Structures are given as C-alpha cells and as structure tokens.
Computed example of a mutant assay.
Amino acid sequence: MRFAVISDVHGNGLALDAVLTDIAVQGVDATLCLGDHVSGPMDPGAVAERLMGLSGSMIRGNHDRWVSETEPDALDPVDGFARAKLAPRHLLWLSGLPDTAVFNGEVFLCHGTPQSDTEVWLDNYWQGRQSTLPDPDTILGHAAGIDYPIILCGHTHIARSVRLPDGRRIINPGSVGLQLVHGSPDARYAIIERRAGRWLTSIRVVEYDCAAAARQAVANGFKQWAPALATGWVGPEGLF
C-alpha cells in the first residue's frame, strides 16, 4: 500500500496543482486529505473543485468547519473571503466531511488531535519563528485509544514524524498552501507506504510559483499573506 497525504491547502490553488502533478507520478493508491482546504485569500473555489474530484479519505479542519457552519458576518476576514468565493455545492461538500476518518483499516486521520480540530499535537504554537515539540506524555495522551499503526494530523503546518514506544507513528505532512517558519515557501506533503511489513514515510517538498500566489493574495486585499507565501520565513501572527 502506498498513498499520499496532503493537508492545509488554505485556498492555494497554485500550490495544490503543483503537488497533485507531483503525486500523479508517484504511483500512489490514494490521496488522503487532512483539512483546512479552502481558507486562504487566493483561489478557494478552484481548490474545492480539485479536491472534490479526488478519491481517498478526506476530513475537514477547523477552518472548513467555520466556513461551512458559521454565519458569514461572524467569520474572520479570510474565512469570510473563502465563503464568499464558494458555490453552494462547495459548502455542502465541506459540511459533509467528517472530523476524523479511517483509511484501509490501518490509517487514522484527524486535523489537530483525535479529540479536537483546533488543538496542536506534534508542535506547540509558534512564538515568532520558534516552535517546540510537546512533552512525550502530552503526545501519548492524545494518542490514547487510537489503535492504528499510522495516525495522521495536520493543523500546525510543520512536517514531522513521531514514532511512539509501541511502534505507532504520528505523521504531520506539513502544509501544501501556506509555509510558516520553514525558511522555504515550497509546498509540502507526504508519501507513506508499507513495504515488506515496514512503514516508510517521506516528506516531499515541491516548488511552485509562490510569487504568483503572493500576488493573488495582495490583489484580493490580503497583503499580510504575501511574506509568508513568498518566503516561508514568517510565523502565523496576523494572517487570520
């Protein structure tokens, strides 16, 4: 079994197209999606259309939940922009996505942690460019009762793989559409496969026209997104 994992596209159609093109030559059996699909000031509608055409398990993130369930006048500016750019069929699709899922009886999907789509798991929230790994007890606590060899999460936009003492792996593939504190604007996703009884994970880094994505954000009235999209050096402060 060999599959791709994408997360946190955040409405960045240029980054998504580059990643899907790369996935197409990887020989995967499915592409799994971990949420926060559309909330970004680039091209939310195009992202929704592309993701709706994929096969493979797909869940929603906290921003997907807010966009599809919150009254428009109560949304923050970025989520409000995304909702305004989505057709009714896109909103119906988002509202129908589950919070968690299981793929092929072996892979558990969540956005933040199994208990919450807003909690962070493998990384604490940033302070400027710093992010710290939580203590082992915190990581293990969120994994309690999740009896699958592969556990997937997103939300922090930082790619990381953690192996628990019992052999379970928790993997965050990073973000397709919005790089934070990486020092690189390139899109990220994961390829995971089981080979000869062993699980292997690789994080792929894909170049795309990040300057064009930054220009889209500026043209749509969100110039504060441009440094993150164009450089990948900055933290999330002030983006949402």
Results as ranks from 00 to 15, higher is better:
Pro98Leu: 12
Gly61Met: 11
Gly80Val: 11
Asp64Val: 11
Thr113Arg: 08
Gln115Arg: 13
Thr132Cys: 05
Arg129Gly: 08
Ala74Phe: 13
Ala82Val: 05
Thr138Gln: 12
Pro77Lys: 11
Trp126Leu: 09
Val47Leu: 06
Leu109Met: 01
Asp135Pro: 02
Ala46Thr: 14
Pro88Asp: 10
Leu75Thr: 14
Tyr125Phe: 11
Gly80Asp: 06
Asp99Asn: 08
Val78Glu: 10
Leu91Tyr: 07
Leu54Arg: 10
Ala48Ile: 08
Ser131Glu: 00
Ser131Lys: 06
Pro77His: 06
Leu109Val: 05
Gly96Tyr: 09
Gln115Tyr: 14
Thr70Phe: 04
Ser95Arg: 15
Ser55Met: 15
Leu92His: 13
Thr132Glu: 15
Asp76Val: 14
Gly96Ala: 10
Asp135Trp: 14
Leu109Gln: 00
Asp137Phe: 11
Gly128Thr: 09
Glu71Trp: 08
His63Tyr: 03
Pro77Met: 03
Leu86Met: 01
Asp117Glu: 09
Phe108Trp: 10
Leu54Pro: 04
Ala101Asp: 14
Trp93Thr: 12
Phe108Asn: 00
Thr100Cys: 03
Val67Glu: 05
Val47Arg: 04
Gln130Tyr: 14
Tyr125Gly: 05
Gln115Lys: 10
Gly112Arg: 03
Leu86Ile: 07
Gly56Cys: 09
Thr118Phe: 07
Phe81Arg: 06
Glu69His: 09
Pro88Cys: 03
Thr70Ser: 11
Asp73Trp: 13
Leu91Ile: 10
Val47Cys: 05
Leu94Ile: 14
Thr100Ile: 12
Asp135Leu: 12
Pro114Ala: 10
Trp66Gly: 01
Leu94Asp: 06
Leu133Lys: 12
Val67Trp: 00
Ala82Cys: 08
Leu133Gln: 15
Cys110Gln: 04
Ser55Thr: 15
Gly56Gln: 01
Leu109Lys: 02
Leu122Gly: 05
Ala82Pro: 00
